[in-house]
Structures are given as C-alpha cells and as structure tokens.
Simulated scan of single mutants.
Amino acid sequence: MTRITSAGRLALSYPERGATAGGRPLPAGYHHLHHRTRLGRGRAVFEAAGTAVTTFGVHRASGVRVRCDDGAVRPGSRVDVGLGWGPLRIDAPCEVVWTAYGPARTGFAYGTLPGHPERGEESFLVLLDPDGTVWFEVTAFSRPARWYTRLAGPLVPFLQRCYARRLGRVLRRAAAAA
C-alpha cells in the first residue's frame, strides 16, 4: 500500500526518517554503510565540495542521472536518481529529508519513496575539521524493496560501497580543481 502524506505527496518507504543525521545509531534490520574520503585541506576545498554535493554535481559527474525539483537541495525536494544505462536504467525516487549548510558541515540526506529498489536513507556530507582537513562522508542504511534487489543479495551493498568510493574520488578531483 502506498502512503500519501497530508500534503498529497508520497510518504517515505521507511519509518526512521532522519536517522543518518547523526547522534544515534543507525536503525537495526538494515545494511549499514559508512564511508569517508579525504578531499584535501582548506576553506576553498570545503566550499567547492559542498557546492558539488548540494547541487548534485558530484552525482552527475559520477555518471548518475539526477532530476531534482529544486536547484539546490532543501528538505522536501523530490529527487529522481537514474541508475544503469539504456533499457537497464532503474529510476529511484527519493525525497530530501534533511540538509546541513554550516561553516564546517554541508550536505544532505535523502530517503526512499515507493518505487525505489531499496528502503532507507543515505546522507552525503562535506566536513571541515578544525585543522583544515576536508572530508566527504557517506552514511546509509537500506534493505531491499523490490524482487530484483532481494535476488541480488549481497551484491547490492557491495555496489553501494563502490558508488560511495566513486563519489569520493570524483569529488576529490572536482574540489582540487576549484
């Protein structure tokens, strides 16, 4: 059954909204992902990386099709992520559940909507340490929502980790060029 919110929008396909925001353990019953990539040092790297993350520039540069109903992320933004190629493309509808636009933390998380191959949430953060080191951090929890992701079994978490690493490499190059 597809749930609709009082605003007439599709409801998230999982109940633990905002669990990637930190401060508490990720929910049980899901595969957990946590990946960090060192991007470089300094405010310029932080700002360039933050912009690339919050405008989906890093996702697009990594070869993923992204359609967002807003230019930059904001809570409630509807996001459609296209995974794969040609007739094998899978559309993955999401909604931005939280954002961070601060002096040392920039990014967002989106949660899955009905029709997404997984159920869960994924955050993408750029962090500036007090010593000037800039990090890109991906945190996620997910479990299969479709027959083909259940069938793929442990391949899905492996591919998610590969994607997080690819985002980190692409973002490091983009931030260094800024």
Rank of each mutant, 00 (worst) to 15 (best):
A44N: 04
V45N: 01
A48F: 05
A48P: 02
A48C: 13
A48Q: 06
G50W: 06
T51Q: 11
A52M: 13
V53Y: 08
V53M: 07
T54W: 01
T54A: 06
T54G: 02
T55C: 13
F56R: 08
G57D: 01
G57R: 01
G57L: 00
V58C: 11
H59T: 03
H59R: 03
R60S: 15
A61T: 05
S62H: 12
G63H: 13
G63R: 13
V64W: 05
R67H: 12
C68P: 00
D69C: 05
D70S: 14
D70T: 13
G71R: 15
R78Q: 04
V79W: 04
V79C: 07
V79N: 08
V79E: 04
V79H: 06
D80H: 13
V81D: 04
V81H: 10
L83C: 05
L83G: 03
G86P: 11
L88W: 05
L88E: 06
I90E: 14
I90T: 13
D91R: 06
D91T: 12
D91P: 03
D91F: 03
A92N: 07
P93H: 10
P93E: 10
C94P: 00
C94R: 00
V96E: 00
V96N: 03
V97K: 02
W98A: 12
W98C: 10
T99C: 05
A100W: 10
G102E: 15
G102V: 14
P103F: 03
P103C: 06
A104F: 09
A104Q: 09
R105I: 08
R105V: 09
R105N: 08
T106M: 07
T106K: 07
T106S: 09
T106D: 07
G107V: 00
A109C: 11
A109N: 06
G111W: 05
L113R: 15
P114C: 06
P114Q: 04
H116E: 00
H116P: 01
H116K: 04
H116A: 00
E118L: 14
E118V: 09
E118K: 12
R119S: 15
E121P: 00
E122A: 08
S123M: 01
S123K: 00
F124I: 03
L125M: 13
L125K: 01
V126M: 09
V126P: 03
L127E: 10
L128S: 06
D129F: 00
D129H: 06
P130E: 15
D131R: 07
T133I: 10
T133W: 08
T133N: 11
V134E: 02
V134Y: 00
W135K: 08
F136P: 01
V138T: 15
T139S: 14
F141N: 09
S142N: 03
S142M: 05
R143V: 00
P144L: 08
A145R: 02
A145P: 01
A145H: 04
R146H: 04
R146A: 08
R146V: 04
Y148F: 15
Y148L: 10
T149F: 12
T149Q: 07
R150A: 11
A152V: 15
G153L: 12
G153P: 08
G153A: 15
P154M: 06
L155R: 11
V156D: 12
P157K: 10
F158W: 14
F158V: 11
L159D: 06
Q160I: 08
Q160H: 13
R161L: 12
R161A: 10
Y163H: 09
A164T: 04
R166I: 06
R166D: 05
R166F: 07
R169I: 10
R169A: 15
V170A: 11
L171F: 13
L171K: 10
R172Q: 15
